[in-house]
Amino acid sequence: MKYLCLIYVNEDALERLPADERRALHDSARVLRQQLRQHQRLHASGTVACTLTATTLRYRDERRRIEPGPATEGPVQLAGWLVLEAAHLDEALALAAHLPACRLGAVEVRPVTTAEETP
């Protein structure tokens, strides 16, 4: 099954980390992705720029509105994602637990829809 891991990070906390710690964090994430890829467990992954760069589109009263900022509030925000291949949820969770973001925020794991229903 395919599982999506949504990586949530406290942007302020990440910003405050000393540069070498931040680099170490990114390095360990990179190593993890390489390992997952070698074991054919990684379908896709990506990282998004910080929420200062986010823009949100909403429809209100039939009119489209472009608003600055992310769709959800708070300092903990989406920073990246992985699509994993795992036999079942427990395996997906075990893989996700290695992500360094678990320490700095949280990783949400959700199965990817198998039916043909893309929102």
Partner: peptide, 28 residues
């Protein structure tokens, strides 16, 4: 492009002082 199953299928993983905690439901 990926569509997600509803949030009731979501599980959230955190690591606090060396222990992994798994909670039911979405992060946000």
């Amino acid at each position: 492009a990926e569509a997600l199953e509803p949030v009731n299928t979501a599980v959230t993983v955190r690591l606090h002082q060396g222990t992994t905690s798994v909670t039911d439901g979405p992060f946000a």
